[in-house]
Simulated assay, not measured.
Amino acid sequence: MADGKACKHLVLVHGACVGGWSWFTVAARLRSAGYRVTAPDLAASGADPRPLREVPTFRDYTGPLLSLLGSLPPGENVVLVGHSLGGVNVALAAELFPDKIAAAVFLCAFMPDHTSRPSHVLEKFIIDKWLDWMDTEMKPQDAEGKLPTSMLFGPQIAREKLMQLCSPEDLTLAGSLLRVSSMFVEDLQVQQPYSKERYGSARKVYIVCKQDLAIPEGFQRWMIENNPVDEVKEIDADHVVMLSRPDELARCLADVAESYA
C-alpha cells in the first residue's frame, strides 16, 4: 500500500506573499502517510533569492513550477494543488503540461475559465469589492508602469481576514516570512484565454473553505458555477487552511490523490 502511495505525487503551490514554507505542516502529514510531496517556491517567493522587480510576468513568476513539471519523466503525472492566487499558476501549468496533471485542485483559489482572459476572475474579485484590503500595501514598481503592481499583506488583514482561525504562533511565523508579491493583473490582462483542449480538459477539484474572509465562500461558489469542476469538497476553515486545519486538509488531499492519481 505504501508503495502505491509513494507513486502518488502531490505538488503544492502557494499563494501571493508566502512561499512553499506555508505548506510545511500539511506536507509533513502527507509524507508520513506515504505520499510524495513537493512544495516549490515560486519566483521571488519563499527562499527564492530574486526580488519581485526581476519577475516581470506571471509566467516568470510561475517558472519554478513549470521547470518542475517539465523535468518529470515521461508518463509521470501529479496532483497539482493551488492555494489562493496559486490557482492561476495551476491553470497555466495545466495549459502548458496537460499530460502531467492527474488533477488540478483549487484550494479556496482563484480559478480561471477557458473562455475569458486569465485576469478575469481577479478583475471581477477586485471590481466587485469582495475584499476590504485594509492595510495591504499596493505600490507601482516603476515610474513607467511596465512592471505589475506590488502587493504586501499587512498585520491587520492577516489577523482579521486571512488567518483569523490560526494560532498566534502561526500568525507570528507568517508575519516574519511574508514577502512583497503581486497579483500580476496587468500581465494577465494581455494573455489569451487558456484553451478548452488543454487547461479545460484537466480534471478539476475545488475545495471550498467555508470561513474564508479573504476569498469569501460566495466568490468561490461563483467561480465553480462559472467553470464547473469534477468534484467540490468543503472544509470549515479560514483562508490559510494549511495552517489552521492541517489535519483536515491533509486527509482531503489524500482522498483526492487516491481518487485521481
Rank of each mutant, 00 (worst) to 15 (best):
Q211N: 14
M1V: 12
P140G: 03
R159V: 14
G82V: 01
V240N: 06
S244F: 03
F97D: 00
R221Q: 09
I215F: 14
I207S: 01
Q192M: 14
S150G: 05
F110S: 02
V88Y: 01
S22V: 12
L65A: 01
E258F: 05
M138F: 12
V180N: 03
D135A: 13
K161N: 05
A27S: 09
V26Q: 01
M111Q: 12
L171P: 03
G19D: 06
D247I: 13
C7P: 09
L80W: 01
L177F: 06
G20H: 09
W133T: 00
L69S: 11
A93W: 02
F58N: 01
G175V: 03
S244L: 02
G70I: 05
P168E: 09
E95W: 04
R198L: 11
G218E: 10
A6L: 14
H120I: 10
A39E: 07
R59C: 04
P193E: 13
F219W: 12
S116Q: 14
Q189M: 11
V13D: 01
V240F: 12
A143M: 08
A93Y: 02
V121T: 04
L42C: 10
F153V: 01
Q141S: 15
V18T: 13
R59L: 14
S167M: 10
A143S: 12
I157K: 06
F97C: 06
I101G: 00
